[in-house]
Design a protein around this nucleic acid. Structure first.
Lengths: 225, 225
DNA sequence: GCTTATCGGAGTATTTCATTCCGATAGGAT
DNA sequence: ATCCTATCGGAATGAAATACTCCGATAAGC
C-alpha cells in the first residue's frame, strides 16, 4: 500500500526503517477505522512492534497523528498530479479517487479537531484542494463528470470510503468496498439524470472541523477570509 | 426522525416518555458516529437528560445497545414492507435505502461484536435480510436495478452511509450526505456499464462480525450452517 | 399542602490509556 | 571471539476517562 523509498540499509538500521513503515501503515489503518481516540497500543500491536520502538520515533501520539496527516496529504497530492497527467480526464479522476480510498487518504477526517493543525498542514491541505479543483474542472470540461458534482462532493466521497472498514479489516471488506466504490463512481458519470439534491457543500463546512477546541487556530480564519 | 407512537400522557409521565425517545435518538446518533465505545455520558448530554434518568430506563450500556439494535431492525423491517408495497420496484428500493440511511439503520454495524447478540436479535436480523432479498429481487425482475448488484451490496451501502457524519452532525453534513447518496443510488440503476469488480459479498462475512468475543454465539453457527 | 415518582448530576470504583523505564538482543568494531 | 552500543519489546506507572450509584431537588397528582 505505502510506497517505500528503497534505500538499502543493513541489519539494525534496516529493521528500524522497516518498522517505521510498519508503524505508519498500522497507524493509518487503526486511526482511520477507530478514530483518533484509538489507543497507541493498538497501533503497536498491529504493527508487530513494541511500545518502545514506537515512542523512539514519535515522541507523542500527537506527533504520530500529525505525521500521518502530512503523509496522507503528500500521497494524495502525488496521486492528484498523476491524475492531471492522465490522458483521459475521467480516468484521471476515477483513478485519483480509487487511489485515495486505497490508502485511506480521507481518513484524516475523523482526526480533524483532535490535533492542533500546523501551518505546514494548512499549506498541504490548501494545495490538495487546489489540485482536486483542477482535476474536477478538467473532468467537467471534458464532459465525463456530471456537471452538478463539485470538488467538495468528491472530497466527501473519498472521506466516506476511507473511513469504511471494520476494526480488523479483511480481504472480504476490501472486496465489498471496491464494489461500492465502483457503484459510486458510476453514479458520478455525466448522464441525463436527476440533479443532485440540496446545495453544493461549502468550503467553510469542510474546513471548520479542523478547528482545535480551546485554542484559536488562526490559519482557519485566514483560510475562510 | 423516529416515529412516535402518540399515546397522550400527562405531566411527569409525558416527560418520561418524551425522554425515552430523546435518549434513543441521541444514543443512535452518538453510537453511530463514535462507535460502541462512546461514553454513556455523551448520550445523556446530547439527549439533554441526566444520568439518573437514563439509567432508570436502561440498567446498563449493553441493554441500551441491544434496545437500539432491535429498534433499528424493527424500523428497517417497517421500511422494507413499505418498499415492497410501493407501486414501482425501483422507487421502493431507493426509498428504502434513503429511509434506512435517514435513521442510520446500518449504524448497527460498528456495534457488532460489542454486545452479545440475543436469539431475538438474530430472528430480527434474519427477517430483515429476507425482506431486503425480496426488495432486491423485485427490482431486478423489474429491470430498474443493475443485475450484478446483490442484496448484500445494498446492505453494505446502507451501513456505509449510516456511519457517515461527524461527532456533532450539522444540517450541512446531512446535505452532503444526501448528495452522495443520490450519486450512489444513481450508480445502482440498471444501465450498460462495466460489471462490478470482485465477487459478490458473502453472508458469512456479513454475519461473522457479530460474533461476541470470548463466548460462543451458537446462533451464528446455526445461521451459517 | 403533602406524597411520591421522576429528574439531574456529583461521587466512586474500575478500567483504559499515554508515556516511561529497563533488561534483553544482536549488529558491528576491535 | 568479545565487547560495546543502538535498538527492541513490553512491564510499570500515574493520570484521565468511564460505567454505574446515590441522593437531594423538583413538581405532578391528590
Amino acid at each position: 500500500m505505502t510506497e517505500r523509498v528503497e534505500r538499502p540499509r543493513r541489519g539494525r538500521q534496516a529493521e528500524a526503517e522497516r518498522n517505521d513503515w510498519l508503524v505508519l501503515d498500522a497507524a493509518r489503518e487503526v486511526f482511520a477505522t477507530r478514530g483518533a481516540g484509538a489507543p497507541i497500543a493498538a497501533v503497536a500491536e498491529r504493527a508487530g512492534v513494541g511500545m518502545g520502538s514506537l515512542y523512539r520515533r514519535y515522541g507523542s501520539k500527537t506527533e504520530l497523528l500529525r505525521r500521518l496527516c502530512m503523509l496522507a496529504m503528500e500521497q494524495s497530492a502525488g496521486a492528484a498530479e498523476a491524475a492531471l497527467a492522465a490522458p483521459d480526464a475521467w480516468d484521471g479522476l476515477a483513478g485519483f479517487v480509487r487511489t485515495c480510498v486505497g490508502f485511506r487518504s480521507g481518513a484524516l477526517g475523523p482526526l480533524a479537531g483532535a490535533i492542533e493543525t500546523t501551518p505546514e498542514m494548512w499549506e498541504a491541505s490548501r494545495r490538495g484542494r487546489d489540485l482536486l479543483d483542477a482535476i474536477v474542472d478538467r473532468a467537467h470540461r471534458d464532459g465525463g463528470l456530471r456537471e452538478d458534482v463539485t470538488a467538495l462532493d468528491v472530497m466527501w466521497l473519498i472521506e466516506l470510503f476511507s473511513r469504511w472498514g471494520a476494526a480488523r479489516s479483511s480481504p472480504e471488506d476490501d472486496n465489498a468496498r471496491q464494489r461500492l466504490l465502483a457503484i459510486a463512481l458510476d453514479g458520478l458519470r455525466a448522464r441525463g439524470t436527476e440533479p443532485l439534491p440540496g446545495t453544493p457543500p461549502s468550503v467553510e463546512h469542510y474546513v471548520e472541523r479542523w478547528r482545535y477546541p480551546g485554542r484559536v487556530t488562526q490559519a482557519i480564519d485566514s483560510e475562510l477570509a
